[in-house]
């Protein structure tokens, strides 16, 4: 057990990464932050639409999409990867709907069947065509954020200005566009998430919004996939948004809190991983989970403790006058 958990050394855990390995640390934390922000922002809408597990499904099922795209395109460009992911995302959505609308299988089972099948297909494709090269299937699951630094990745330069490693720059663009899209279509997204019937009467096509959201989700997932892997993407999709939802009930505030949460979990997660010498992406998710637990217990409005405290103080939990309104 002693070997498992290394002794805590403040110098090693908190200072050394920023002073000695700044190049490494900076890009990893930035990538973590970008992934958590983009996923968290999109994830908020998934939570609102009670589709959190559709996000789970898509983050698994883009795997065969990517595999097939590369098989066909024969290149490691960004475009085929995005196209493959988009196709897989839409295919998953359609498949889920086809199964539960055209048979009596309910939606939850339809989700389970669709994504496990597609994911299995992806794993088989990889294991069939990849055993010559040293491919580790686990990385599909939990990625490797440690390799996004300029040490191992080609660097993007625009007009002599060095921007950063390719995956990070790509993720940054996706995150920015995510923010822009949400700002542009804020009211459409809100209305169609809250009340599709109302959206229809306002001339907003809820189906189009649904598929657009799924498409964008696929894009976000595929760009995050590289860093955190298929399964931890789902964590980044749900945890920041769920934590924020416990702290506020107003959507703009929730979106803002999501970003703050992303920054916190990326930084603390990195240090946790440095201390324990474990998977960085995993540690970031663990920290996001810890933040959720903190919000769950201490949230001023909905936390367990404040509520308990309130209850004992007023004795009659029922006399709350809000009900009389």
């Amino acid at each position: 057990m002693n070997q498992l958990i290394p002794p805590f050394d403040f110098e090693r855990v908190f200072l050394a990464p920023w002073t000695q390995h700044f190049e490494l640390t900076f890009w990893i934390v930035l990538m973590g932050f970008l992934v958590a922000t983009a996923c968290g922002l999109v994830g908020n809408y998934l939570i609102l639409r009670r589709m959190a597990l559709v996000g789970d499904a898509i983050s698994h099922s883009i795997l065969p999409g990517i595999a097939v795209a590369f098989l066909l395109a024969n290149s490691r460009g960004t475009t085929p990867m995005f196209l493959g992911a988009l196709a897989a995302g839409v295919a998953t959505t359609i498949l889920i709907e086809a199964i539960h609308k055209r048979s009596r299988v309910k939606q939850d089972a339809a989700i389970g069947i669709a994504f496990t099948s597609l994911f299995a297909l992806g794993v088989i494709l990889i294991s069939l065509y990849a055993s010559k090269v040293d491919l580790d299937q686990e990385c599909v699951l939990y990625g490797e954020i440690g390799f996004v630094t300029p040490l191992t990745q080609p660097v993007v330069t625009v007009g002599g200005l060095t921007l950063g490693p390719v995956p990070v720059v790509r993720m940054a663009v996706v995150t920015l566009v995510t923010g822009l899209l949400i700002a542009m279509f804020y009211k459409e997204l809100l209305v169609s998430s809250f009340d599709p019937a109302l959206a229809f009467s306002l001339g907003i096509n809820a189906t189009v919004m649904h598929y657009a959201l799924m498409c964008w989700l696929s894009v976000v997932v595929v760009s995050a996939f590289e860093a955190v892997g298929a399964i931890l993407v789902i964590a980044m999709l749900i945890l920041p948004g769920a934590t924020a939802a416990l702290l506020s009930q107003r959507l703009p505030v929730v979106l803002l809190l999501t970003v703050v949460n992303a920054a916190l979990s990326a930084t603390t997660g990195f240090h946790l991983a440095t201390w324990l010498d474990c998977s960085i992406a995993g540690a970031m998710v663990v920290m996001a989970g810890v933040l959720f637990c903190l919000a769950w217990v201490f949230s001023p409005t909905q936390g367990l403790l404040p509520r308990q405290w309130q209850r004992t103080r007023t004795n009659t939990a029922l006399s709350a006058p809000e009900w009389i309104h």
């Binding site: 007023t314 004795n315 009659t316 006399s319 006058p321 009389i324 309104h325």
Partner: peptide
């Protein structure tokens, strides 16, 4: 009915406020 209840809640005093 609501106003009756509001009345009672108000009479119990202290713990609840009636707008």
């Amino acid at each position: 009915i609501l106003s009756e209840v509001a009345h009672v809640v108000g009479q119990r005093g202290g713990s609840a406020k009636v707008p």
